[in-house]
Structures are given as structure tokens and as C-alpha cells.
Design a protein around this nucleic acid. Structure first.
Lengths: 231, 231
DNA sequence: TCGAACAATTCAGAATTCAATATGAAGCTG
DNA sequence: CAGCTTCATATTGAATTCTGAATTGTTCGA
């Protein structure tokens, strides 16, 4: 297994491991051995160590000094908490972003919605998600609140599987697009309170379906939850 | 300079550097040299590197690969953002904590308020802050929301200087204690919505004085802000 | 037979060494 | 004289080595 995407080996190792954990390729409860991981990735132990420390900071693994490194993974509680955090921080970020969003930004947002409609008609879930991500990213980043941006973007990858399920339902995609149109309309008025209200509503809409989708996902995740619990 | 508090050298180095940055002993804009820092701390470069990476994750330094490590420090904007995040997450954490707080917890909270009153009469600012910290810590942790707890506790140290200024004003201490009594009363009713409302009010109360205190602190911080800006 | 202590093995933490990259100065060329 | 190129130096990134801690297994004694 070779890594090429980043000149910094520790970053490549981090991204690789992170992806493997989030995709459940490495399962929760598993113990990682520095040496083995290093050999698997074809690098030395140093960058692996650094990658593991970074993963620990994100809560994806837990390091027991001088013992072992335990993979934690993403549980249902974790996904619920992430949505809770998002529902608290995104509305405020959006309302602050109102001050900083340029007309070009708003045009791009409009464009992204149009693209979403197009992808939705083709049933291209990946592309809808990409457009969706950029939509929220533009708004969040315009808030210029570096910590909030970091928190939101960090949590983003954790709910990849969840969002995929969400976007696979045509009714939910339709509703999502309508809500994005509403958000854009609100942003165009430059009315902070209105934006906050609409974004909150949008996130509550997601929460509404969250439990249903989590139930659907239960089967695929349950195995890992159990394994994690046994350890 | 020797470090003894932690069997893990990297943790000691991290804590030491973090403290030095937050206390402005190391100034924003300064460039850290791994070798020099290692020599100053009397350890090798490896744990220093790991400490610096951890500091980068917290946003206290910025590492430019193969170049240098820049100290960022805490700006006014940073403090404002931290309070904003806190104001969004603490009320929700408290309202969820309602389900989990034991009677022992509530007794401890009551006790902490009594201690605060005592320390306030003696003008012991450090002790008031300690009691204050434990008060919020108990509530936050009872939410069992690990990510939110991590976010809130991580940001805690950043506003140390700010909180010290806050607690040095007897009028604000008095008000703070009254509000804590209100919070405890709300928690005792086990009414989630009420708790959320009261905690929100408490945090808004802090925000109210924030700008005034930041203005006071300006003189001591301005120098460093300027330095940071020049770099 | 069970428990405790000691030894051996394993694995992570830290130090040291080696390699790569960026910067800055000096010299050369147009 | 200015700008580009090259080379030397400084500094970080990665690999390797060494040390120390923790766990496990074995042996001896009660």
C-alpha cells in the first residue's frame, strides 16, 4: 500500500487511517500496533505515531500510553451529537456570514442549487452531496469564525454514510433543495435573524428524519457497535 | 528548565508550551525553533515536535512544513468566538444534563455556590474561579456529550485571563453567584426548557460585560495583537 | 494446587541519526 | 547594474536505534 497524495508522510498516513476508520475498514474495538500499521503503509513508525496522535485528538482512536491504540469509530450517539452541534453552530455562523457574503458567493450558491436540481434528476447522489457540501461550506466560511468553521468541517466526514442514506431518498432531496432555495433567499435579504431562523428550520428538518435513517442504518452498524461494546 | 509533572515528556512539553503561550510568556508572532525549544526544555526534538503538532490542532501555533512554527496566541476575536460557541453549546448541554444529574451532583453544586460566596467575601479570586469551573464542569459532563464536553473544556483555558478580569469585579461576582443559584434552582426542577433558558440568560449576561472587559484588557493585549499583525 | 515473584518479551516513548527542502547569499551573465 | 542561477547552510521531516515500562508466562514456595 503506497501513499502519494501529500508530500508530508504523516498527513498521508493520517488521511489514510482516518478514511479507513470512517469507512469501517478498520473496525471499532480493533487495536492498532504502530509497527504493523507502519509496515502496512510502507513508512516508518514516526509519521504513524504522529498520525495516531492526531486521530486521538479527533476522538477516532484512544491511545493508552505504553499499551496500545484502540479504534473508537463512529457510533449512533456520535452521529446524533454531531447533528446537535451542527444545529447549534450553523445557524449562528450563517447569520454572521450575512455580513461577509459577496454577490459572487450568492451567485455561486444559486448555481449550486441549480446543479443539485440537475444531479437530482439524474439520481447522481455523489454529485448532489458535493454540491450540498460546497453550499454549506461557502456560507460557513464566510462567517470568518475560524473555530466554528474548523468544528463544522471536522465533523463533516463523520456523517458521510448518514448523509448518503439521506440523499438517496428522492423525497428528502427534493425537500433539501427547496430548503436551500429558502436559505439563499434569506441570505439575499441580508436579514440576519431571518437567516438564522431559516437555517435552524433546515437543520431541524434533517433531525426530523435522522432517527428513521439511523434505524435503517442500524443493521450495517450494529455489528460494529456490538464489537465495540465487547471490548 | 525541567519538567516532572507527567511521565509522558510530550505531554509535559505540550502543557508547558501551552501555558507559556496562553500566559503570553511566548508572544504571538514569535517563531519557534524545534531544536532551541528542545534544548530549553532539556529534552530531545521528538516530544517537542509532537507537542507542537498538538498545539497546532488547538490553533495556538501554525506549522509551515519545512519552514517554521509560528505562535498565534489568543486575540480578542478569538475570545469573542469562544464565548459565542459557549453560548450556543452550554445551554443545550445543561438541558440534556438534567436527565443525568444525580442528587449528589446537585448537592455538590449547592456546596460550590456556598463556597463561592465565602471566597467572594474574602476576595479570593482564584478560588472563586475554581469553584466556578467545577460548577460548569459538573453540569457539562453530566450531558454525556463527549464532543461538546471536549470543545467546551478545551476552550476553557483560552479565556483564563478574561475570566480573571471578570471575577475581579465584585459586582460581577455577585451577579454571577446569583445566576448560579438560579441555574441550580432550574436544575432542581428538572425542567429542560427552563434550564436552557436560564443558562442562556447567564451566558448573555457574561457577553454583556465582555466588550467592557476586553476594552480594559486592550492595553495589555494590544502590543501582542500588533506584533502578530506585523508578521 | 494456588499464588506470588521474577524474568523475558513485547511494544511504545524518546533520542539520535540521516535525508530532504527551503532560504539566502554570492557569483555569473545578459 | 539587475536578475537569475547555483551552492551552502539552516531547519524541519522521517528513519533508526535505544531505553524503559507493562504484561505475560514460568517457576518456586507455601
Amino acid at each position: 500500500m503506497k501513499i502519494l497524495d501529500n508530500p508530508l508522510i504523516r498527513e498521508s498516513a493520517f488521511n489514510q487511517l482516518r478514511k479507513m476508520i470512517l469507512s469501517q475498514e478498520i473496525k471499532p474495538g480493533e487495536k492498532l500496533n504502530e509497527k504493523e500499521v507502519a509496515e502496512q503503509l510502507g513508512v516508518s513508525r514516526t509519521p504513524v505515531r504522529e498520525a495516531l496522535h492526531k486521530l486521538e485528538l479527533e476522538g477516532l482512536v484512544e491511545i493508552f500510553p505504553r499499551r496500545y491504540c484502540l479504534v473508537k469509530g463512529v457510533t449512533h450517539e456520535c452521529i446524533r451529537e454531531i447533528h446537535l452541534i451542527r444545529s447549534q453552530l450553523e445557524p449562528i455562523a450563517a447569520s454572521i456570514a450575512v455580513n461577509n457574503l459577496t454577490n459572487e458567493d450568492l451567485e455561486r450558491l444559486d448555481n449550486l442549487i441549480k446543479l443539485s436540481v440537475e444531479f437530482a434528476s439524474k439520481g447522481n447522489v455523489e454529485k448532489i452531496m458535493e454540491a450540498n457540501d460546497e453550499f454549506h461550506q461557502i456560507i460557513n466560511r464566510a462567517s470568518n469564525l475560524s473555530r466554528i468553521i474548523a468544528i463544522l468541517e471536522n465533523m463533516h466526514d463523520y456523517v458521510e454514510a448518514f448523509r448518503y442514506s439521506f440523499m438517496s431518498r428522492t423525497d428528502l432531496v427534493k425537500r433539501s433543495i427547496e430548503e436551500h432555495q429558502e436559505i439563499l433567499a434569506a441570505l439575499q435579504t441580508r436579514d440576519k435573524e431571518l437567516v438564522k431562523k431559516i437555517v435552524t428550520k433546515h437543520l431541524e428538518g434533517i433531525t426530523e428524519y435522522e432517527e428513521v435513517i439511523l434505524e435503517d442504518m442500524k443493521q450495517s452498524l450494529k455489528v460494529f457497535d456490538d464489537e465495540l461494546h465487547n471490548k
